[in-house]
Simulated assay, not measured.
Amino acid sequence: MKKHLCYCCTIIFLSLFSCTTEEYAASENRILPKVLKTIYPDNPSGNFETTIFYDENRIVKVSNKFEKIDYSYNGNFISSEVKYNIINGEEVKYSETFYEYENESLKTVSTIMNGERTRFVYSKNDDGSVNMETYIFDTETKKESKNPGLSVLTFNNGNLINLVSNWGYNDVITCSRFQYDGQHNAFKNVLGFKLLLGQNIFGSEVNISSPNNLTRHTDSPIVSGNIVFEPCANTMTYEYNKKGYPTRQTIYDYTGRIINITEYIY
């Protein structure tokens, strides 16, 4: 009888533990930023709010007084992104982006911006880095040509840490380095974002597809023949909630001046 009772208690405990774990995971997956408040300390009149809409963990729409972005999915993969400028209350489409995948990895990104077409093709290297080739479509000849340059993206634990771009013209090479904290990126639970490999989602958030938060972004000197330009760097600091998600981000330029502040509401 005692053995039977002990066995029953063990089953009940394991069941409760399993439910608790599943409920916790489900609760974590529901942590999604709903509103972003952008604050400019030097220009309060420029402050604005961005609202984000979801269908469960799929992002549907991003909207503020300047712009609207619509997203579409194919299963669990983001398939397209359409951007509109808000002009005198009217939506004016200016950009479309289409994403294609192979073996659950990003393969091709095609953009149409103000009538100009660009295609980015991704391929993995043996060391885990990723090459990104660029193709330009000529609207007059109706032909696509490959840019002679190449960008190489290096990742660590899912975070983009290095981006070296040889633009293929006039010996111009740029090198960007990225550092991160150990906390949760506000957008880590958005389905499909982690596959977008450093694409500039929302136009400016370089690290939005990374699992952690960007703390420093440095652009090394741009080399063009014998000309070397001054490097630049931005630093980010954060405040977090109890679960390790950011509630406030402050961005500083290389002089220590605050560029802007973002507050996250979940």
Rank of each mutant, 00 (worst) to 15 (best):
Y238Q: 01
S72W: 02
P246M: 08
K83G: 11
F137G: 05
T235K: 13
S210V: 02
N125S: 07
V223P: 00
S129N: 06
D181N: 08
W167K: 00
N162S: 11
K37C: 03
R117W: 11
I222S: 01
S72Q: 12
K188M: 08
N213A: 06
T10E: 12
T108I: 15
G168M: 04
M113H: 08
N76K: 13
N125M: 09
E96L: 09
N170K: 09
L36Y: 10
N88M: 09
T10I: 11
I201V: 15
L153T: 02
Q179W: 07
H4N: 03
G256S: 07
E91Y: 08
N213E: 04
T218G: 01
V121C: 05
K146E: 15
G244W: 04
F178D: 02
N57W: 03
L196T: 12
S129E: 06
I69D: 07
N185A: 02
K68C: 10
A186Q: 06
I173G: 00
P231Q: 11
S123Q: 10
D171Y: 11
S224Q: 14
S63N: 08
E230H: 06
T21L: 14
Y84W: 14
V164D: 05
F77A: 08
Y169Q: 01
T247C: 00
V152E: 09
H217I: 04
S105V: 05
W167H: 03
I201L: 15
P33Q: 10
M1C: 03
H217W: 13
Y24F: 08
V190Q: 05
T174F: 01
S105R: 12
N147G: 03
E239Y: 02
S79P: 04
K37F: 06
C8A: 12
I39Q: 04
N29C: 07
L197Y: 13
V228Q: 04
M132V: 15
E67L: 11
P41K: 10
N241T: 01
E133H: 05
I259R: 14
G182D: 15
E22K: 09
D127E: 05
T38M: 10
S123Y: 10
K242P: 00
V164W: 03
I251W: 02
S15Y: 07
K83P: 00
D181F: 07
K142W: 03
N200M: 11
E116N: 15
D126T: 10
T108W: 04
S209H: 14
G46P: 01
F193Q: 03
S129R: 06
D181A: 03
S15C: 11
V82Q: 12
F155T: 14
K68P: 00
D171M: 11
E104K: 13
G198D: 12
F178T: 02
N226T: 15
F178Q: 00
D171T: 12
V228A: 01
C9V: 13
I12S: 00
N159P: 04
R216M: 04
S79F: 09
I201S: 06
F202Y: 13
D253P: 01
K65Q: 10
T141P: 04
E102F: 06
L32Q: 09
S79K: 15
L196V: 14
G225H: 03
L197I: 05
T97V: 15
G89P: 05
S63K: 12
E90L: 10
P211A: 05
R117Y: 13
T118Y: 13
F77G: 02
N260S: 14
